[in-house]
């Protein structure tokens, strides 16, 4: 552009200036009223007294958080000790989500790299192939996985028939099944941001490294990984956060032993437990953890910029 407006304000157009509020209002109203207010209401509910079989009594109480963190015995009159049941469930959820994230990274990085280094035409086909499963209903994908790995499912049938194994693998209702389900659910979230980062990567840097006597794996470790790190971090967040609160994979692929946060919360509202304040408290704690992760991420992003 010759002369004219200095680019200080960014090249953001202001052609409809003065209409910002009018245009933003529907989005503000919709998300403000039906998401922000509900989240606030949920936090309030977590401090109310439970009504049996769902609902609340409008009376302040910290019982929900007390139940979450402390054990006061069967009749509530013993000195409080730390209650590990729910913390354990949260910890297991974090562990499961973490394992799934690492698995996604180990498979997703080479995949993203491979796709990003194809020529433009084949690249879009590969990318299409990787994204298609994401567009298929998550429930259906999870059910399909359950069907495939069941003890009497096609996988075990095939392996038994071929003589590779003599007994079913017993995959279903294990931690591994849940991890596999989470991995399967969110893998495209890992591939896409890494793909975008690799696509922007300047291969002259690899040439420079090779010129300076670095082998391929040294180049990967010292040059490529630092360059595409933002994509890797974004991918990890995009897999970890939804995995943490996932419901379908643990519910359908795991059993009672692999209970995760999502199922714990669901049970308070839809299941037998029927303790709304407790469910709201667990949700509030989950939201706090997720927001903390995102905040750390945003802070690092800003520092990097």
């Amino acid at each position: 552009m010759a002369a004219g407006a200095p680019m200080g304000e960014g090249s953001a157009s202001n052609i409809y200036r003065g209409n910002s509020l009018k245009l933003m209002l529907p989005a503000w109203a919709m998300i403000g009223v039906f998401l922000l207010a509900p989240v606030a209401m949920m936090a309030i509910y977590s401090f109310l007294t439970k009504e049996f079989r769902g609902g609340v009594i409008w009376q302040f109480s910290t019982a929900a958080y007390d139940q979450f963190f402390f054990n006061r015995g069967l009749f509530g009159d013993e000195p409080p000790t730390i209650e590990w049941t729910y913390i354990g469930i949260f910890w297991r959820s974090i562990w499961q989500a973490g394992v799934a994230t690492i698995a996604c990274l180990l498979i997703g990085f080479p995949t993203a790299w491979f796709i990003a280094t194809r020529d433009a035409k084949t690249r879009s086909v590969w990318l299409f192939l990787v994204t298609v499963p994401y567009w298929v209903n998550l429930l259906i994908r999870t059910v399909s996985m359950k069907f495939l790995i069941r003890d009497t499912g096609p996988l075990n049938e095939f392996l038994l028939w071929s003589g590779t194994i003599s007994e079913p693998l017993g995959l279903i209702n294990t931690n591994f099944a849940v991890q596999l389900g989470l991995f399967y659910s969110y893998l495209p979230f890992m591939v896409l941001p890494i793909y975008a980062a690799v696509e922007r990567y300047d291969f002259a840097l690899s040439e420079a490294a090779a010129d300076l006597y670095a082998g391929v794996w040294t180049t990967l470790r010292l040059v490529i990984l630092p360059e595409v790190k933002p994509g890797i971090v974004a991918g990890c967040i995009l897999v970890f956060v939804p995995s943490l609160g996932a419901f379908l994979a643990p519910d359908l692929l795991g059993g009672a032993k692999t209970f995760m946060i999502g199922s714990l919360i669901e049970e308070q509202f839809k299941g037998a437990a029927g303790n709304w304040p407790f469910g709201a408290a667990a949700s509030t704690i989950l939201l706090t953890i997720v927001m903390a992760v995102l905040l750390v991420y945003a802070r690092n992003q800003n520092r990097g910029a």
């Binding site: 552009m1 010759a2 002369a3 004219g4 407006a5 200095p6």
Partner: peptide, 19 residues
């Protein structure tokens, strides 16, 4: 007439009403 950043395009855009 002028080099980049001399204000000539800005002046034109003021006449057109874009600025």
């Amino acid at each position: 007439l002028g080099p980049s950043g001399c204000g000539k395009t800005t002046l034109l855009r003021c006449i057109a009403g874009f600025e």
